[in-house]
Design a protein around this nucleic acid. Structure first.
Lengths: 343, 343
DNA sequence: CTGAAAGCGCTAACAC
DNA sequence: GTGTTAGCGCTTTCAG
């Protein structure tokens, strides 16, 4: 194996000079730099990352803790993160944990084990406290969520997310605009201080703003993002309650399960029940009818997360980015059948 | 930061003893081991990976080159790989490349840059030659595919895959058994020396074995695994050809797009057209009708890939594992309408 | 600008 | 069994 010493010897310079060249340090004469670079290329030398990391007592590794396995939306984001990290000279080490596990614990462990420079939390709770986060000693960014229910100072972390509350409210308002009054909501939990809670609030407030009384019967809490749970719960609702004409689902894939459940109960989407969701991953465009969704810009979320983190690593201050969602018009949303009847 | 020296000092032993305990070496007395372990836990000490790697002159990193971004099936597998790697004390560094990129090139670069111990190729071509693979200097395993069209010696690499040819043939035979004769196939390419080609051969041979002449019109080549391409191509076929009563898709998600295309052309699944695919990811169970599929054991594929690689790293010989697929009965497959008519 | 030398934290002989 | 010590390959003072 060719090491920095070999390069130094071959060029008749000291190792520190080679090190300087390798790290683009300015204090090397042009000709020496040229010679070293040439030898590096000739010999196919690639610096040993472990030695580097050990030497400067830090790596170029970013940990990504993905909470919620099987989340197809996260897969897209994660992909883009690795691309962006590569482009910026960082490696990404992923850790997938289930929604039941503690992401902070996982992150803290990963940080020490792998000497991370920073951590990106992809999916998680909104209620961290400074005490809790003190376990994490490197900069971190919350991805797809923020700290709405917690007490973290803004300047202590970065975040990239959509405005969950607003997006949900807009979605529900769109349904209201189409004449829907009995609007169900499909959600893992309304009080877990997680993304679902925020979207639930958007739903609740949108109804209230339009003078619509909320029917607790129509709040379907599944306990998870799992499709099977979504299907079961919606089927149960649809079987015993035929009043609702629309449903707002906090996730794309849950909406797909809901669509099946609703149709399996003999009700048509969108003629009898409209279905609207947040996320907008590609495959839900191919349901029948294709799912209407508030699309999160997955690529941008992934890229921005890495950008923010590396910026902080370079000394820039923490930032909080809110990305816009776009409406993907599908065929799952229509006017309320009751409206139509009245007309 | 707490280091191995701190532990040693606190326990009144030498660093090598601590090292031995940390590495589960047998030559340490039970009581010393106990004491060290206790102090490790008390202090929250976590070994520095870089130093470890440098010390033993090798990392514990496995590279995973994922070819084909957006492949939902791969996401599942990749997940499980990281779990298994963690459990075995390895980290995984992923690299996602598009189907147009060269996975060997990507792997070779990753190997040198990150000092990989081994590489897992998730998705790729089947026609590698030894010359080509000589770029890769560490053990590697081909995941979800093998070297059917190439010239690699079996003992030079590992692989984990299903029997693509057999699985495809079985799928088509199942359709034939239900009276179907005009069976279309949906596939990226029939001659790219990739997974599709193998499955195409299974399709072709199954037809031949049952004396059914293949209709070239019914071979839909999309050029990619992309859903949009699948939709467009199937729609085109369905618009001008109403003879086929069944379609075999080489991937789940393509099948979903096909289902939509077929129904958008006014034909019913499964009454008029049966649809059968390979992969079996969860979400395709929630199409309407739910997709019937030959399910690949994603979890096992992921875990076995890592197991095989780490085994080889321990000195064991390369192995080739063929995992069984299981039929997931959905609602997208039925008897041929022509059969029914005859009865 | 450049080189010598002292670590970074751990592993692995080697001696006891 | 256990401690001592010499590296692993690189970064980074510190002189010059």
């Amino acid at each position: 194996m060719v090491t920095i010493k070999d390069i130094a010897k071959a060029c008749g310079v000291g190792v520190s000079t080679v090190s300087r060249v390798l790290n683009n340090r300015p204090d090397v004469s042009a000709e020496v730099r040229e010679k070293v670079l040439l030898e590096v290329r000739r010999s196919g030398y690639i610096p040993n990352n472990s030695a580097r990391d050990l030497g400067r007592n830090q790596g170029n590794t970013i940990g990504v803790v993905v909470r919620g396995t099987g989340n197809l939306f996260f897969a897209d984001i994660f992909n883009k993160m690795t691309d962006e990290a590569d482009a910026r000279g960082f490696s990404i080490i992923p850790r997938f944990i289930s929604s039941d596990d503690d992401e902070i614990q996982a992150g803290a462990y990963l940080e020490r084990e792998k000497r991370l420079r920073g951590i990106i939390f992809l999916g998680g709770r909104f209620d961290y406290t400074p005490e809790e986060m003190s376990l994490i000693d490197v900069p971190y960014v919350l991805c797809t969520y923020s700290n709405e229910f917690g007490t973290l100072p803004d300047e202590g972390y970065s975040s990239v997310s959509i405005d969950d509350y607003r997006t949900a409210a807009e979605a529900v308002e769109m349904l209201i605009g189409l004449g829907h009054r009995k609007i169900a909501v499909l959600i893992p939990s309304i009080s877990d201080h997680s993304i679902g809670e925020l979207r639930y609030q958007g739903y609740r407030d949108a109804l209230a703003a339009h003078g619509i009384e909320m029917d607790p019967q129509l709040v379907v809490k599944t306990g998870s993002f799992d499709l099977d749970d979504a299907y079961k719960n919606v089927k149960e609702l649809a079987a015993r309650n035929r009043t609702f004409t629309a449903m707002f689902a906090v996730s794309d894939t849950m909406a797909l399960a809901a669509m099946k459940a609703i149709e399996d109960c003999g009700r048509k989407v969108p003629e009898e029940v409209s279905l609207l969701a947040i996320d907008g991953i590609q495959i839900t465009e191919y349901s029948r009818p294709s799912l209407t969704a508030m699309v999160q810009p997955a690529d941008e979320i992934g890229r921005k997360s890495v950008e923010l983190l590396t910026d902080v690593l370079k000394g820039k201050p923490h930032r909080h980015i809110r990305l816009k969602t776009g409406l993907r018009t599908g065929g799952s949303v229509g006017k309320s059948p009751e409206t139509t009847a009245i007309i």
